[in-house]
């Protein structure tokens, strides 16, 4: 639900309604199906969208693995709003709406049975309210992305490629929870490559950056928002990060799933 709502929000649209297609394995307990539908209803209510139509298909036992639900959404892009990866321009500011890598590390610590001293919480959330608050103070927001699978590194490389620009990040300004940073160190992962939910990246004109950051920080899903870098005309199509000790490194497009390293 949040995934589809956020896909709409990242194109600048106000989500209106969703469809739901159920693929159900024969023998699925009715109670499970009711619970799935109930949770979808709750999520729709929170996001302020309606599920207006749907369909069910039942497949033979052993061919469905329980239930799959596919959602499609329709939204309305307000007049004058034009958000897209190709619109980033040199001089623009890159903003992250909050700490990066929380979701992926939460999943990994559960899946792999890793226990850290502090719990890492997942952060799935609908983001169209945050987007609306941003567009209200800056209708010329250029790019919005929710950096899910592949993490911020993927989204930023996509933006750099689509707009033919470079992106220069500053490691010291990138919000990462200490426990996530520590878990990434242990597993040899890069927080920029770890999946997020309920977070967005934005590219906005420099003169609007403070205004947008202010609006984001007063919204519940943007409290930790931070400017993390700039769009530049140097090194087109490449994302570069200034490191904490004063060096630089390239942030490449991640290849496939991140795999923990041996050393």
């Amino acid at each position: 639900m949040n995934g589809t709502v956020n896909d709409l929000a990242m194109s600048g649209a106000r989500p209106l309604c969703l469809t739901a297609g159920f693929i159900i394995e024969e023998g699925l307990p009715m109670g499970d199906l009711v619970e799935v539908a109930r949770r979808m209803g709750l999520a729709a209510g929170r996001a302020g969208v309606r599920v207006v139509t749907g369909d069910t298909k039942v497949v033979e036992r052993g061919r469905g693995d329980g239930v799959y639900v596919n959602t499609t959404g329709v939204g309305l892009v307000p007049a004058g709003i034009d958000v897209g990866g190709g619109r980033a321009q040199p001089g623009d500011v890159v903003i992250a709406s909050g700490t990066l890598g929380d979701h992926g590390m939460a999943i990994m610590s559960v899946r792999e049975g890793l226990e850290f001293e502090a719990e890492i919480a997942s952060d799935t959330a609908p983001l169209h309210g945050l987007v609306a608050a941003m567009l209200a103070v800056c209708p010329t927001v250029r790019v919005l992305r929710d950096p899910t699978r592949g993490g911020a590194a993927t989204s930023l490389n996509e933006i750099a490629a689509a707009a033919g620009v470079g992106i220069a990040l500053d490691e010291a300004t990138i919000p990462v929870r200490p426990v996530v940073a520590a878990a990434c160190e242990i597993l040899g992962l890069d927080p920029l490559q770890v999946a997020n939910e309920g977070k967005l990246l934005a590219v906005v004109p420099a003169d609007a950056a403070d205004r947008v950051l202010g609006a984001m920080r007063s919204h519940e899903h943007g409290r930790d928002a931070a400017a993390i870098g700039r769009v530049v005309d140097r090194h087109p199509r490449i994302v570069v990060m200034g490191t904490g000790i004063g060096g630089t490194r390239i942030i490449p497009m991640p290849l496939g799933e991140q795999l923990p390293r041996i050393c």
């Binding site: 490191t243 904490g244 000790i245 004063g246 060096g247 630089t248 490194r249 050393c263």
Partner: peptide, 17 residues
């Protein structure tokens, strides 16, 4: 000698200093 050192050198830009 170690790949972990290579990784850290590249990741932090140590060689550029």
């Amino acid at each position: 000698v170690c790949g972990g050192q290579t990784h850290s050198i590249i990741r932090n830009g140590v060689d550029q200093l």
